[in-house]
Amino acid sequence: MFRNALHYAIANIRSNRQVCLASIGSIAVALSFPGLFLFIFVNLNSFLSNWNREVQLMVYLKDDITQQQQVDIEALLQQSPNAEMVTFISREDAWTDFQTLFADKSGLLEELDFNPLPASFRVHFKEGPDRVDTIRGAADSTKGVPGIESIDYGEQWIASFETFLIFLKIFLVALGGILAMGVLLIISNTIKLSVYSRREEIELMLLIGANPRFIKTPFFLEGIFHGTVGAIISIGLLKLLHLYFQFNFEGTFGSMTQGIEFQFIGIFYIAMIIGASMLVGWLGSSLSVNQFLKSYQK
């Protein structure tokens, strides 16, 4: 039976070639949008995890800190969970580093006739999935300790970025849902055209005793075919975009993307796009065929 269904599905596609191409093209374009946002999401996520790896806790000390307070703060930081290395940077070292970093801005440095930088502790943390949370915990536990001027680990920036990613995720799900409805309509209408172009044959099938499943299966296969090919083309377009970014922009954002490669959406997302598109293809064709067959139930 499946061979026959496949045979009829291929015949359907051949006899409605233009409609089929239009449907696949529309699906490919429609799926490219969530694909594009998925691509952006995956890369932002990847950038975030790279930046997270660079995040370290800076504890700036007051100028009038006592020796004992400095020893206590160092001990406290060393006891922080997952703290790997605690480095003391004196005011003089900080000033030297600053001068080295901004050597090309010598005019600015010459105008400064005193050292404005505070002494600090730089704390490196071990790699781990909850690294940022660990740093956040360590920062919280040092807040208010005498001798500490301020604490910085780019908290606000990280929090904003994380919030942005959550919004992007919600946006992606909503966009995916809306476009899935669009794809459903496209496939449903295309299959409807296919069904109507073969209505005489379908009516005859019903008259001479064809199992409804036998009638429906070729159209289901056609819908699934449209969905699958549309999804594959959209993923292909996305891959071209990925290659374009790789060749033209990788490493050109300076320190921001240093050592970072543009990521392509993973196999899980590819399987998800194709799987969802197949499902929508089946649903769309199912809607049209069942509606048509129902009109013959008197």
Binding site: E203, L207, N211
Partner: peptide, 15 residues
């Protein structure tokens, strides 16, 4: 369809 398989039908317009 099981009923219709046991019945042959001929129409005026041949179908």
């Amino acid at each position: 369809y099981l009923l219709r398989r046991k019945i042959g039908v001929v129409f005026q317009d041949y179908k």
